[in-house]
Write a protein that binds this DNA or RNA. Structure first.
Lengths: 241, 241
DNA sequence: CGCGGAGTTGAGATTGTTCAAGGATTGTGG
DNA sequence: CCACAATCCTTGAACAATCTCAACTCCGCG
């Protein structure tokens, strides 16, 4: 039952993803849009399972393709995932970084990033050359914290069923923001064990709960993708957003 | 079995608490310490159960006495607590506030606060008059995010027993920082239902789990206070930071 | 063809919840 | 000083959610 994945973005259009992400927050000036599109540093590929690292000289990066996560190792082989990092997201040490920006960032699939430090350039007065971009980046950091709070609610106050539904709905929303998901269909490259590490559930129970979602007609799933066929119903049912 | 609570702070010494909190992060200049001690605005008392609010003109406040929390209402009568706010902590809208700074802040006991906006004063060049204080406040905001991450770990990766132990150890550490706890003894004005709302547990299970901690010789508890008699053992046992 | 990873299924153990009732403590008014 | 209500803690028993272990399937890949 192989279905096509979500719309794929041509390699040369990758930079549209962070642009879309930022534009969802505030309109960028044409010059700022051009500055993003003009990024032409080397693209760095991080293999699935590896920690994302960058040279000391760089401050932050855009994720152009692939999924990663923020996580903490609790014990050998046991970890808690805090947040997922999706195509179009920003990683690195923004000015005023918080602890979450410093937590280790691990590739869950093969991940392509590009250095975006150039966008933080300042003029001779010390003002940002692209204030709109810097403001958008600051608000993106705010969204990370907001998601962390949502995650606490999922873990503390939701059943496995509701928490899983919330997670999928949140991911759909984030992917839709950058054009990678629409009308319930989205890429989904995570194994059940990773989902379990996000939600504090065992791999087996993730499988059973997903099966329940399927049985309720709320989910179709295949290798690397999934569909929420009645996404509005589901959102209402679990009181999403 | 009434035991004395933790050392009480005389009313006129309340401002030492935020001072201690900030000093744990970075040494403040003598002038900055004096500026904190010189705060003399009216003290505002918020009744247990009420939301903490402040006039529009003020930016942030010190909590001088009492416990409060960050929380979100999930459904009527159902809420998730994100973090506790203890004496000496800062609340309000710092510059660069994140979503958690905006979340509703509810008094869990009677709470006394004082306006500290004056400390954010700037000179004619636009520089902060008390840069050490502002830097400390920024790092305190970072600690909030760090605690939010710890909370995710407690909720997602810990058993009730371990999570509860972690919570008590964290509170002891924070209270000890401002001189309100030492060698395992600390004030503890929370009911079990509140603890349950923090940890995503039912009130009944909180009671049973605390009983288990008592049975293991790790906890003595009374009205408004508790003792962790073998705090180092406990910290080791549950792998506390 | 065989192998390994990922998903599924079943059975039993554990953990945590719910409901309900009983005891202790505290504050209040008579 | 006592009676009363309110609140919080404790306990028991039945139930539900989730975990663990283990076996089995399915599929992609060398």
């Amino acid at each position: 039952v192989a279905e096509p994945a979500a719309p794929s973005i041509p390699r040369k259009g990758y930079l549209e993803l962070p642009l879309l992400r930022m534009s969802k927050i505030a309109a960028l000036a044409p010059a700022e849009q051009a500055a993003v599109r003009a990024l032409n540093g080397p693209r760095r590929t991080t293999a699935k399972g590896s920690v994302l690292v960058w040279p000391e000289t760089s401050q932050f990066h855009f994720v152009l393709d692939g999924w990663a996560c923020r996580q903490r190792e609790i014990a050998p082989g046991r970890r808690q995932l805090f947040d997922l990092i999706l195509p179009g997201d920003v990683v690195g040490r923004l000015p005023d970084a918080g602890p979450i920006d410093d937590s280790s960032c691990v590739a869950l699939t093969s991940v392509i990033t590009i250095d975006a430090t150039a966008l933080a350039r300042r003029d001779v007065q010390g003002q940002f050359v692209h204030p709109g971009i810097m403001s958008a980046l600051g608000q993106l950091r705010g969204k990370v914290q907001r998601r962390l709070m949502d995650h606490v609610v999922r873990l503390g106050a939701h059943s496995a069923y509701d928490g899983l539904a919330h997670l999928l709905l949140e991911l759909h929303e984030r992917l839709a923001d950058v054009g990678l998901a629409s009308s319930g269909r989205m890429p989904f490259p995570l194994g059940y064990e990773r989902v379990g590490e996000l939600l504090g559930l065992s791999e087996v129970h993730v499988g059973r709960t997903l099966a329940k979602l399927k049985a309720d007609g709320h989910l179709e799933i295949g290798p690397g993708w999934l569909v929420l066929p009645r996404i509005d119903d589901l959102a209402r049912q679990v009181h999403y957003a």
